[in-house]
Amino acid sequence: MHTFFASFSFMTDHFGLLADRTVDHLKLSAAAVAVALVLALPLGVWLGHRGKGSFLTVSISNIGRALPSLALIAIFLGLLGIGFVNVLTALVVMAVPPVLTHAYLSVEQVDPDLVRAGRGMGLTEWQILTRIELPLALPVLFTGIRIAAVYVISSATLAAVAGGGGLGDIILNQVSYGLSGVIAAALWVAFLALAADALFGALRKRLTPRGVLAGRSA
């Protein structure tokens, strides 16, 4: 218990250090999520629009889930060496499955009658996607991003193993920072993950179309 409380004095005493590592941690996480979005979002949305590729998306997700991130970092050590790129790649591999699956499902689940109505009215495929499918898909799509962000922020701790920096530097270095330092940094990571979860949760709520909310309360 003593060490647990000591971790709070560690936070105030070493605030500069924690803030510094947090910035690194968030930079790394943001970069990983961003790359995952660029890779998986257009693909998932396009496959969802076509209504094809459930096999592909499900397979990618399952493979992604089955791979432990520490193992990935170890594998990439051989391929990419130590450092930012290695860790980033591992985190991207973690972030892609939830983004891809949710992007696919979010578009695919839009009521086919609406798509048919839009097509019958003479909307182009692009207009169907941007005016009908995406607005209705946004809430589910954001759930995917939210899950990816939480995964990545908590897993980025392992970056320290491969010299990626971040809060993991403190957590994996009990010799320098003591147990209270480890706990402080771990709490910090937990807090960051929860904050990201809350942030994307709030965004999701904002992005749910008003007409859809009206339908739920009615």
Binding site: D113, R116, A117, G120, M121, G122, I132, R210
Partner: peptide, 29 residues
Amino acid sequence: IELRRSIGYVIQQAGLFPHMTIEENIATV
């Protein structure tokens, strides 16, 4: 696309877009 825009299409259950207001729905084409 032009052909479809010159033809009114009504389906069962109306197929209105739930995220658009009545005005936006009618204004689509």
